[in-house]
Write a protein that binds this DNA or RNA. Structure first.
Length: 430
DNA sequence: TCTGGGGTCCTAGGACCC
DNA sequence: TCTGGGGTCCTAGGACCC
């Protein structure tokens, strides 16, 4: 509890409306005003819906696509497989636009960023409106802007901006009279507050706390005793104390996971090896992008939770003798673990690799078993591999182990072209 | 018969977020 | 047939140490 910042702060939260669906629509003007959904990896579940789709299919978020597809087609819904290359690129444009408005932008997720507006003079509501309009003009994305004295309040303001009648995508709680705030917050279920999920909502309801205003009025010390320090901080943040600051230099990641379900079941060790190799390389690539090294790796394989056969899960940690960022070493280590946990006769659905105990520099010691810290030579090799894959396309160069089976890849039946990241995907002029 | 008390590390599980 | 993937933080309890 040492990081409470006593000086008055003002933060804005900007997030894109139905981000994935909007990205798809930006390049398909013919779909404007029509229902669009985006599916998870493997075309498994609905993970994004635009406004029009929400009206027709209100409760379809996270439902398996195979269950709702017929109904969706009947309503003229267009479905897309996830196209993360496109979303990442649109996200970068969005963030670049936000940087015009504040020197401090904290990227919170692919479609959400906090801006530090502390000390800015003038009408913040007007500033919020300007941010919203500029993003619309420069990227084609619709966004909501919420402003408040803490991150929790900025989040809540954002919720109001997007969902409460009378707000057109911008809400500034920092300058709103308390009377009006009370009216607004009394009409928001307590689960609208950042940090209050379904479990906490149920517990709070039992104690008579049903709306956001009531939670704001709660005694922080009692909340701490009953619920712990996290909710106590939330209550304080609702009252304008900034316990979480907005900053660019986030602490390093603590773990990196790459895992995914297969398009079809695998039983064969060789095919599983291809998948595990991919995840080891993929996780290592993302780790190098953050400038980190790992000294522990975890490999897991499992069949499905919904299977007739009993749920099978196997996973094992391997402590590495010294921190590394080398794809080759990590892939070898991952395959070594895989061979130990693999059991024949199981219809595997998913595999994953987790890198944990991340550190910011390579180890020095050489160990006895031939596993050495990265050499300058291996560092150059990794840098070359990354730059080629970045320049051309991910997966242009990969380790041989990945190529031994290619049956495990994702189903992506409704993939849009990569409009912004590949020449072949550029929209054609009419 | 008496059965301390403080500290650390690790793990599992719970809750939340996008 | 088909049910996402990737993270964080906190707490409690056990093992172990002095």
């Amino acid at each position: 509890m040492s990081n409470f910042m006593p000086s008055p702060t003002t933060y804005a939260l900007c997030d894109a409306n139905s981000f994935y669906a909007s990205c798809e629509q930006v390049f398909r003007p013919d779909l404007r005003g029509k229902p669009v959904v985006v599916l998870s990896n493997n075309d498994g579940c609905v993970i994004a819906q635009n406004k029009e789709a929400k009206q027709k299919l209100a409760l379809w978020m996270c439902r398996p696509w195979f269950e709702v597809e017929r109904e969706a087609r009947k309503h003229g819904v267009t479905a897309f497989s996830s196209n993360y290359a496109l979303y990442a690129d649109m996200s970068n444009r969005f963030i670049a636009t936000l940087r015009q408005f504040s020197p401090v932008v904290e990227v919170y997720s692919i479609d959400e960023s906090f801006l530090d507006l502390t000390g800015m003079q003038g009408d913040l509501f007007a500033l919020g409106t300007s941010i919203k309009n500029t993003v619309q003009q420069w990227t084609g994305l619709g966004i909501g802007v919420g402003i408040g004295h803490s991150k929790t309040l900025a989040k809540l303001a954002n919720h109001i901006a997007k969902r409460v009648e009378g707000f057109d995508g911008v809400c500034d709680l920092s300058s709103m009279p308390m009377k009006q705030q009370q009216q607004l917050l009394e009409n928001l279920p307590v689960s609208c507050v950042w940090g209050v999920g379904s479990r906490l909502e149920r517990k709070l309801n039992k104690l008579g706390v049903h709306n956001a205003w009531r939670l704001k009025q709660a005694d922080p010390k009692r909340v701490r005793d009953e619920f712990g320090v996290i909710l106590e901080r939330t209550v304080r943040e609702l009252n304008g104390e900034a316990w979480h600051s907005v900053g660019e230099d986030l602490p390093d990641a603590k773990q990196i996971i790459s895992s995914r379900s297969f398009a079809k079941r695998l039983t064969d060790l060789q095919e599983l090896s291809a998948a595990v190799s991919f995840h080891a390389s993929n996780a290592a690539l993302r780790m190098r992008a953050k400038g980190l090294y790992t000294s522990a790796l975890y490999v897991s394989i499992n069949n499905g939770l919904h299977d007739q056969a009993a749920f099978f899960h196997a996973g094992q940690f391997l402590a590495l003798p010294s921190p590394t960022n080398c794809s080759i070493q990590l892939t070898q280590a991952a395959l070594w673990v895989l061979r130990r946990i693999y059991r024949p006769g199981i219809y595997y659905l998913k595999a994953g690799v987790m890198l944990s105990e991340l550190v910011s520099s390579a180890g020095q010691q050489q160990d006895l078993f031939g596993f050495s810290a990265p050499t300058p030579k291996s560092q150059r090799l990794m840098a070359t591999l990354d730059s080629i894959n970045q320049r051309y396309k991910r997966g242009t160069i990969k380790l041989a182990a990945e190529a031994l089976g290619d049956d495990w890849g994702m189903r992506r039946a409704f993939l849009s072209p990569s409009y912004t990241t590949e020449w072949s995907g550029l929209p054609k002029a009419k």
